[in-house]
Amino acid sequence: MTALWLLAACGGGYDGSWLMSFIYKAEEGGGSGQRDDLIVDIYTTASGQTVANLAGTLMTGAIEAGAIEVSLVESYAYKRGNCTYESEQRLTLTGEFSGTAAVAGDLQLEYTGRDCDETETDVSGYSMTGLRLDADPARHVGSFSNYWFDDYYYYEDYGDYDDEDFGDTG
């Protein structure tokens, strides 16, 4: 009874550490099947939000009716002359829990970039399965590798434009 009361009071029935396996999905012209296993911690905050700590990358959202959706979004805009470069990266983890000890879903990374009149989009993803660990998530706090997000693109690819890349700078 105490455990049930705590679950209801804290809203954290899925909180804890999870061993999640991510398998890369096929994309056009690319390979698939690469597997990464990570310990992912799920927390509940005082404001009622769900936070997933994915190897140091924090994603925020909610768990409702046994389904999780958390995301991390970054947008960047850079104006130079008559041109504007804009980009948005969105990392989204979705899943359905089976009881309180197993979960299955997807991890998707979407990129949209607009450079003057050219637009580029890219979507890649992983299928995900997870099992809850009997471990204290606090032990994983502090691993700020940002493995998933920071290895992606845009600053490196777009940070060194010359004026001529942006046409007439006036």
Partner: peptide
């Protein structure tokens, strides 16, 4: 900042 309210008692079953 938003405080983490999760605690071990809220999710470890059988304890």
């Amino acid at each position: 900042a938003d405080r983490i309210t999760s605690n071990r008692d809220s999710y470890v079953e059988g304890e």
